[in-house]
Design a protein around this nucleic acid. Sequence first.
DNA 1: ACCGAAGCGGAACGATCGTTCCGCTTGCAG
DNA 2: CTGCAAGCGGAACGATCGTTCCGCTTCGGT
Lengths: 188, 188
Amino acid sequence: MPFAVPTLRRDAARNRQRVLDAASALLRERGLDVTMQEIADAAGVGVGTVCRRFRTKDDLVAALVRQRLERLLEILQDGIAAMDDDPWAAFADSFTASVELHANDRGFNEAVAASGVACSAPPEQLSAMLDELVRRAIEAGVVRADLTAQEIPQLACMVSRAGGSAIGPVDDDAWRRACAIVLDGMRA
Amino acid sequence: MPFAVPTLRRDAARNRQRVLDAASALLRERGLDVTMQEIADAAGVGVGTVCRRFRTKDDLVAALVRQRLERLLEILQDGIAAMDDDPWAAFADSFTASVELHANDRGFNEAVAASGVACSAPPEQLSAMLDELVRRAIEAGVVRADLTAQEIPQLACMVSRAGGSAIGPVDDDAWRRACAIVLDGMRA
DNA sequence: ACCGAAGCGGAACGATCGTTCCGCTTGCAG
DNA sequence: CTGCAAGCGGAACGATCGTTCCGCTTCGGT
């Protein structure tokens, strides 16, 4: 069998999944500065095991970022599909769902903020779907005509990071309020 | 002379100022992860000198954050003063200037984001001035009536962090566009 | 001009993390 | 059942940073 896939031993595959689950939960709650040690402990394995499966910490978070980006793709797909019915609701709901995805995952949020995401495949698909979503929203006359596709992810990321200012304490649900205001600002 | 102020030797005072200047410039451009070593080098002194004047790195950034907060105070003062003339312009200009202050200083921005600012005096004054600005803007009917004072700094911080999304590259002037949209969303 | 105290530089220290390495264990094909 | 390659844990390593320490220098009052 030429080019045999280097299949994982069953216990190794199980551990790999445990690491992914533990890392997902920890990164979501506490952000990028969780330690490899903490991830290993939470997964019930040694750090060596984590590093064997994901050569570097960046690889691990990249794997999780990829998962989130695929979820983002679903959100946009649903939004475009719902466009025929109520264009504004479709647009607003997609936007809100995207923001929520970011807001509920500190790790994803910080990874995205740190560098414009060095991910492999998704970006082009995402970009194409955003183009369509915005184009159709403009054609339907529900958003301001000067809105561009690349502004959407910028605004979504921005809103998801609301809360934490020069004065008041951090408010975990501040993004909902900010989301409403930004949606108002985007509406035609 | 009881309670004599432990006045600084002239050369020490000069070095202290050099450190502040160097730290200000470096933090503004590169954010909180500039090194004490880099700051010392830029100031032309040894790290020991930096740490003698500011017991800890946090003390140093806190000193600079305080400077920015005072600038913020001036902005709000000007905004309130201009309220009699054109309420909306006064409000919008203050907001935009606040955002610009944050956007042009990565260090300040990150310090504010990291923790709800552990600064000494200013917060109460700032809070009072924000109350007045928002109250008068609402009374003049130029912003939505459900806007609250504590939302302003949250929104300003949020907007200043625009740019850097799940897709496109980072755009240094994205905050201007986002600012316009958010202002639109706040308008009555 | 002198001298004690304040200041200085930068090597050394300690803490934190990601990553590697190695002796032992375990799944599994033959 | 058995042999061995794949997997495992966790100690050790190396890099990075903030902070401390100490022998020397410089300021400035007398």
